[in-house]
Amino acid sequence: MTGPETHERYAELAAGHALAALEPDDEQVFRAHLAGCDHCRRALAEHHETLAHLAYAAEPVDLPDGPLEGIRRGMQDSGRLKPEPTAQAGPAEVPGSAEVVGSAEAAGPADLAQPVDVAAARERRRSGASGPRAWMGIAAAAALVFGLGVWNIGLRHDQSMTEQRAQRVAAAVQSLGTAGAHAVPLRDDKGTQVAIAVVRDGSVSLVVDGLAPNDEAASTYVLWQKGQYGVVRAVGTFDVRGNGVDVVRDMKMTPVAGGMAGLAVTREPGRRAPALPGSVPVADGTMPA
């Protein structure tokens, strides 16, 4: 059977299949058809791509530690966990392509049909929740509460910075005064520290060392404060003129519901801060606990 009507019917089944919403009889019909229809395989891949976007419409939630502990336990139990590699990781060969689509189908019907074993999943989390790794997070949190003094020592040992540069940045931070202040390192997407925010009494100063100079005629950097409930609010704008250490002093912040969770910097076209960030942050950081 061919023709536009049939084609549209399978197109509808493809959408329903991508949404995991087909009734069993339709699912069976579509799976049988899919095996021999490149058009529907492409359509299905497009649907999955669209739905991956849709996943981000869900409200953000904190990621608990449980799944990672369970994943670690599962890897250990699998018996194929290799020791951490000692060589620098480089590009690796991509495994051979199986004859599958870039979607859940790629996991294979057997994987998708395999329900989550709730009891086993929770047992893995319980088993993996203890041990030395759990202490790493506690130690990291403890280090934060020592404040700026300890942080400055840490700065000098940051291997992304030269000693000379670390001293310059530390001196600039100290010049702002440290009493009652919190230091928030702002890092780029590679994890390199490119600025330090010194937050105190409703204002924030920035020590910038690592952001690329912007075109002052056509763009500006914007510092954003991020609230605990997802609110993002512009604090102020600034320019970076050269490659030295720049200090931007006393930008006023307004309270956000639930308190401030972190800071981010974007580079925006024009000379004014937009209502919402219009580009991916070039740096961001989280307020210490």
Binding site: Y56, A57, A58, P60, G258, L276, P277, P281, D284, M287
Partner: peptide, 13 residues
């Protein structure tokens, strides 16, 4: 309360 939000994820959402 939600944890700190990423700006880019807020934009995407």
């Amino acid at each position: 309360p939600q944890v700190e939000d990423e700006v880019w994820s807020l934009m995407r959402r």
